[in-house]
Nucleic acid binder design. Structure first.
Length: 745
DNA sequence: ATAGGGTTAG
């Protein structure tokens, strides 16, 4: 019977039921006096019961020994229940039992994993007074604990005090420095170790490789990897998964494939870490099909691989596939974690699926997954993209409630969001309240000011930034130059442009030339702009020619327009906008034959004018309005309100700018067409559905037209509303009958 | 029964 109970307790197929049955026998026959049997029973129990229940059983033991506790502590450690390890450990103290040198390392490990510095120090103190101070295993675990708690100095002091420093201690220290990105220190230690005659093992190498990878020194990491192989080490799963991110970042797909082949040969493709690292590598190298092949070959998909796959799909522009895969695994009731949700939310907000991103955020919370400091800045851009100010504010509040507010990514995302929703002052306040800022934060606030046409503030921020440790990059200059071009500041524009490479070591790129060309051509210096285009150090792209073409329309320069259009028809033959611009120029000159020729070109290519489209957030809903589309359920009210407004607007002396309608139609019809412009529909819809005095924000997928601009100015006065309109170019802030752009755009 | 290393989200 003794034997059979023992066998039953130690069998891997035994369940909680068996444990309870055995427990009854223990009570009946008083087996608790047998230490070995008691230990087996507790070990079995510890697979099924959380600490509080186990502790009751422990308390009921007539004479618990150190072994009773050991079995439980180690079982918890094996099953990663580190809170319970600490619980059992302190319970043991209260029962008057003194831990031995076998038990202490487990307790210390638990402190390390939980980053519980205080209990860690207590155990350290106990070990010191109990004479374990020279036990190398124990001291190694203490070194590790201090490293995990980010107390590198304490760890180093302890490590230096060790009389016999073995490869484990060295490797721990190397990995500790590596994790903090202190690769020079890690390297130093690595050679010191060899000088002391301790040979590195796989773990030491892996620690080094991971460190260089973490620090972004991918080339060094790959070099170490090769060096390690040349010294005769066989990379294992850990090596492979810490070198692959570097290979992915370098987009060295050939090396990636070699490593993949090696992983297969070594049977490492069953290792989940290796799998997700492989998926990530192929994703970064742009090998979507190879990535999918790896993913589809997986027997049992683990969450890390799913996450890596989703991100890889999105990286390669396959958002719809990512969403499908996500839904498939959610339906399979796979347990999704915060990384999965964040990844799919980011895919949506980065790929124009903003409403989906907001919905997914709700689903995530309904699923009981807690968003974190990475989720928030992945979601916030979705609000900015569609000017969903209320949603944006809600998420801002959410992050404040959750205590996620001193994160530099969150702060920068909020700056972008508020400025994309027209609230540049709120954006600035977020910037001012940030406890620390990086280049992204500075760029965000400057790009906000630039979008709002606030050149003075953009320059102010630029010079404030120079007072800090941050150096301007190419994005910084894009903002500064576009602020110049919004305001026609030719001289300042040239000064900043010339200072880029001279003073700040930033080479002007395509977008900077595009800014300068826009700036010059918009103030009418079309010939100067054209000579910049001709003298650029690289082939001008569609943005540059497009800037020139749209200014030609404003300044009625037909010959240059034809040159620019010809280039554009080659560079982007399927962009209807270019044909429309050129045909509009012909139309404005009454050249109807040429106009028709261009229209025919479009028709032959099967191109149609991009329909004007505007969005407006009303309450918690975002409404989409298409130009000339009558399908909105409130269309009748919109038209009624438009008619009333028309009367008022005409009374104020405004005449419809029929020049904006460049079609060969009767004057009467032109007025009709103007009424259908999507931005006007959106403004009117906003007027109907919001309280008097409430500001409105509208975004438009094309540039705002002259007539809408004039009409919205009047509306802002007679309806006493602030109206924010974001078009593809900039912000227009209408208030009291004037617009922040000063009618120059 | 005790010690060291890895992947995936901005």
């Amino acid at each position: 019977m003794f034997q059979s109970i023992s066998q039953c307790l130690n069998s891997s197929t035994s369940t909680l039921f068996h444990a309870r049955q055995a427990h009854a026998l223990f009570l009946k026959f008083d087996f608790f006096s047998n230490t070995q049997l008691t230990t087996s029973l507790l070990t079995l129990y510890s697979h099924y019961l959380p600490f509080p229940q186990l502790s009751i059983i422990l308390s009921s033991l007539p004479q618990p020994t150190i072994f009773s506790f050991s079995s439980i502590v180690h079982a918890f450690a094996r099953s990663h229940h580190f809170h319970h390890v600490l619980g059992a450990f302190s319970h043991m103290g209260s029962r008057g039992l003194v831990p031995d040198s076998y038990l202490l390392p487990s307790a210390i490990k638990a402190c390390a994993i939980l980053k519980a510095l205080k209990p860690g120090r207590q155990v350290h103190g106990f070990a010191a007074v109990s004479g374990f101070g020279s036990d190398s295993i124990l001291v190694s675990s203490l070194v590790h604990m201090y490293l995990k708690c980010n107390r590198i100095e304490d760890a180093r002091k302890l490590f230096d005090s060790m009389s016999e420093r073995d490869v484990i201690g060295w490797s721990a220290m190397i990995a500790g420095y590596s994790r903090l990105g202190l690769v020079d220190k890690a390297k130093e230690l690595f050679s010191e170790m060899r000088n002391e005659g301790v040979e590195p093992n796989l773990v030491s190498w892996n620690g080094m490789i991971a460190g260089f990878g973490n620090a972004g020194s991918y080339i060094e990491a790959v070099m170490l990897f090769r060096e390690m192989i040349s010294e005769g080490f066989l990379p294992d799963g850990s090596t492979v998964s810490c070198v692959l991110p570097g290979i992915g970042n370098l987009e060295d797909v050939l090396l990636g494939e070699q490593v993949h082949g090696y992983a297969i040969k070594q049977g490492l493709e069953l290792d989940n870490f290796v799998l997700s690292a492989l998926l990530d590598m192929y994703g970064r190298c742009g090998c979507a099909s190879e990535m999918s092949r790896v993913f589809n070959g997986i027997d049992q998909t683990e969450i890390g691989s799913l996450n890596a796959f989703l991100t890889g799909l999105s990286r390669n522009g396959l958002v719809d596939t990512a969403l499908e895969v996500f839904k498939k695994f959610k339906a399979r009731e796979m347990e999704l974690n915060v990384v999965t949700w964040t990844s799919i939310i980011a895919s949506c907000s980065q790929n124009g699926k903003d409403m989906e991103a907001l919905e997914l955020f709700r689903d995530m919370q309904a699923d009981g997954v807690e968003p974190n400091a990475v989720t928030i800045p992945s979601l916030i851009p979705a609000c900015g993209n569609i000017s969903a100010l209320m949603h944006g504010k809600e998420i801002h509040c959410f992050s404040l409630r959750k205590g996620i507010f001193d994160d530099v990514y969150v702060g920068s995302a909020l700056i972008d969001m508020y400025s994309n929703c027209g609230r540049i002052q709120l954006a600035r306040r977020c910037f001012d309240l940030m406890p620390s800022r990086n280049l992204v934060s500075w760029n965000a606030v400057m790009s906000g000011y630039a979008m709002h046409g606030k050149a003075k503030e953009t320059f102010e921020m630029f010079h404030m930034m120079l007072q800090t440790d941050h150096k301007p990059d190419s994005i910084t200059f894009t903002s500064v130059l576009s602020a110049c071009s919004q305001n026609g500041l030719t001289e300042e524009g040239w000064n900043y442009f010339n200072s880029m490479s001279k003073e700040y070591d930033v080479k002007p790129q395509m977008e900077h030339y595009a800014c300068i060309v826009t700036l010059l051509s918009r103030v009418g210096k079309l010939e100067e702009a054209y000579s910049v285009v001709k003298e650029m150090p690289f082939e001008p792209d569609a943005c540059v020619w497009g800037a020139l073409l749209s200014s030609c329309r404003v300044h009625h320069n037909l010959s240059l327009a034809e040159i620019a259009a010809e280039k554009l028809f080659v560079l982007e033959p399927d962009n209807p906008g270019n044909y429309v611009l050129l045909s509009n120029i012909y139309a404005s000159k009454g050249m109807w034959d040429e106009e028709n020729r261009i229209r025919d070109m479009m028709k032959n290519k099967g191109l149609r004018k991009n329909p004007g489209c505007s969005w407006i957030e009303i309450g918690r809903r975002v409404h989409t309005l298409l130009s000339g589309d009558k399908s909105h359920p409130q269309m009748k009210e919109i038209l009624e309100k438009s008619d009333k407004l028309s009367i008022e607007i005409k009374k104020s002396g405004y005449l419809p700018m029929t020049k904006s309608v460049l079609q060969d139609v009767e004057e009467q019809d032109k007025e009709q067409i103007l009424c259908g412009h999507s931005e006007k529909l959106a403004v009117v819809l906003g007027l109907i559905n919001t309280n008097p005095g409430q500001p409105l924000q509208v975004i438009k997928n094309l540039r705002i037209c002259d007539d809408c601009h004039a009409v919205i100015k009047v509306i802002s006065r007679i309806e006493d509303r602030e109206i924010f309109v974001r078009d593809t170019n900039r912000f227009h802030h209408f208030k009291d009958g004037v617009c922040s752009c000063g009618d120059f755009w």
